[in-house]
């Protein structure tokens, strides 16, 4: 995104935002902040820049600081640019018992990125997260709305990466069509 151009929500996103604001009492529209930040992140390249956060504040009629303090609290919001796919790798006990350390090591080797980094080809950002409520199918990686489960062999991990490499970006046409943020199609 060109930093000098003020970001704007697409008409589809604006419509979805209005629908969400309608879920809360009139004087409580700030309640829609978390869902709107999710939409913003999906619309503007997988992360929320200060300019995008200012846009969210303007949309809700709240102070920018009210957005910053929230975006920095929750782990799902990326505050720095990310690769095409953010791999959220579960590192918590039950996944560790079933090999998440080994899975992470394999991911780092194959992608060329360490945890916290983006791969040189720009495809994958590796991010460690805590328990994803899927412990019985460990080890787990989450990529947007998709859970990749039982990644306990190098082959399973490689198949996930291959599938992700094949995904193409498409513009968000309609929020009704997809429900919530989703700018990738399988």
């Amino acid at each position: 995104m060109n930093a000098s151009v003020k970001p704007e929500f697409s008409p589809a996103a604006q419509a979805e935002i209005q629908r969400l604001i309608g879920h809360y009492p009139a004087e409580r529209s700030k309640s829609a902040l978390l869902p709107i930040l999710h939409i913003a992140q999906a619309e503007f390249g997988g992360w929320v820049s200060p300019e995008v956060q200012d846009l969210v504040a303007e949309t809700l009629g709240i102070k920018p600081i009210e957005v910053y303090e929230v975006s920095s609290f929750y782990t799902m919001y990326n505050l720095k640019p990310v690769g095409k796919h953010v791999l959220e790798i579960c590192r918590t006990g039950p996944c560790m018992l079933r090999g998440s350390d080994e899975m992470t090591a394999h991911l780092e080797r194959i992608t060329g990125a360490k945890v916290g980094e983006t791969s040189p080809d720009g495809n994958f950002t590796l991010k460690e997260v805590e328990c994803l409520a899927a412990c019985g199918f460990a080890p787990i990686v989450q990529v947007r709305e998709k859970y990749y489960e039982q990644l306990d062999t190098p082959e399973a991990v490689d198949a996930m990466l291959d599938e992700l490499r094949g995904l193409v970006h498409r513009p968000i046409l309609s929020w009704e069509e997809t429900g919530l943020p989703n700018s990738l199609s399988l």
Binding site: M76, V129, A133, K146, T178, L180
Partner: peptide, 16 residues
């Protein structure tokens, strides 16, 4: 309201 953890986006869609 149902407050669902954000990671479960696909479940949120099923619920909606």
């Amino acid at each position: 309201y149902i407050y669902i953890r954000g990671e479960l986006l696909y479940v949120l869609r099923i619920l909606e």
